[in-house]
Amino acid sequence: MLVLDWVFFAVAGPAVVFAGISKGGFGSGAAFAAASVLALVIEPGQALGVMLPLLMLIDLSTLRPYWRKWDGRAAVLLILGGLPGVALGTALYRIAEPDVFRVLIGAISVGFVLWQLSVKRGWVKMGNHKLPNWAGALAGAVAGFTSFVSHAGGPPAAVYLLSRKVSKTQYQATTVLVFWVINIAKFVPYAFLGMFTLQTATANLVLAPFALFGAWLGVRAHYMVPERLFFALTYVLLSLTGIKLIWDGLT
């Protein structure tokens, strides 16, 4: 049972603001850190159930600032691939134990950091050509799956979008549209799997202002705050929480 005490809200409040900033201004890449942090203090399934309605609220509040600024072709391919990915995530969730998801969320967190460092250091080359359409659909499928199991769909979508050399704002707008649709698609299976309860609904009501405030900050920070500083802090947070989740899941 989810206990809504001061410890939960002390952890959840800043985490939700962080998710709003990431989704509102920095391409959603680090928003799943909020679910990783919450999974340190509550069951992984509860963390996912708490975060999804808040992420949907953030999506809705950031659609207008980025309306029609997206890459339409990329968005369609990612969405078409993302829906089967959500279905695959649903199937896995029904047969897996909570510790499996602790390890999976932790591994995705650490893997994301390692991937970003590899790209920054030049160990992994993104290439100078646009990836083909099938790669966009494949990236969408991976994004749909990782989004379902850990709200971490941003990284696979980023690989495809960055290959298209989109602008900063076009990249941000595309991720807003894509994950707005994918998160809507996740809602029904989440409800069917019992991930929404009276306690998660109560937590959503209390945390909604944090989500909206974070989204508001994110939209403004998109044009003001250096991405390098924001993501440096994100990488540290994800590394620590990811290692802790893997340790908890294995022990």
Rank of each mutant, 00 (worst) to 15 (best):
A139H: 09
L245E: 01
G249E: 06
Y66D: 07
E227D: 14
M224R: 15
A39Q: 11
F18D: 01
T251H: 15
Y160D: 09
V236S: 10
M56F: 10
A215E: 04
P98C: 10
W123R: 14
F145M: 14
G20S: 08
T202D: 09
I58W: 03
L207C: 07
F213K: 03
A15V: 07
I243N: 06
P155W: 00
V206E: 06
P209Y: 10
G89N: 11
S109Q: 05
Y66T: 01
N133M: 06
T197A: 10
G72R: 13
G140N: 04
V225C: 04
R94D: 15
I246S: 11
F192V: 14
R94K: 15
G13L: 15
W247N: 12
Y160K: 01
G154S: 06
A39K: 02
R102Q: 11
G20K: 05
V76A: 15
L57R: 05
Y171E: 02
Q170K: 05
A157K: 05
L92W: 13
L117I: 13
V178H: 03
M195Q: 14
F26M: 09
S61E: 00
A74L: 00
Y171W: 04
P98F: 08
G111T: 10
Y171V: 09
V142L: 12
A152C: 12
K130Y: 08
I95H: 12
L162P: 03
G111H: 08
L54G: 00
A158W: 01
L217A: 13
L2N: 03
A203M: 07
L83A: 14
F196S: 09
F179E: 00
G24L: 00
R220P: 00
L52V: 04
M1R: 09
N128F: 00
H222V: 03
S61Y: 06
D5S: 06
T251K: 14
L83D: 08
L77H: 06
L229G: 10
L161N: 09
P209K: 07
W67S: 08
L52Q: 07
G218E: 02
V17T: 08
T174H: 09
F32C: 04
A173V: 02
S167P: 05
A191M: 11
V103R: 03
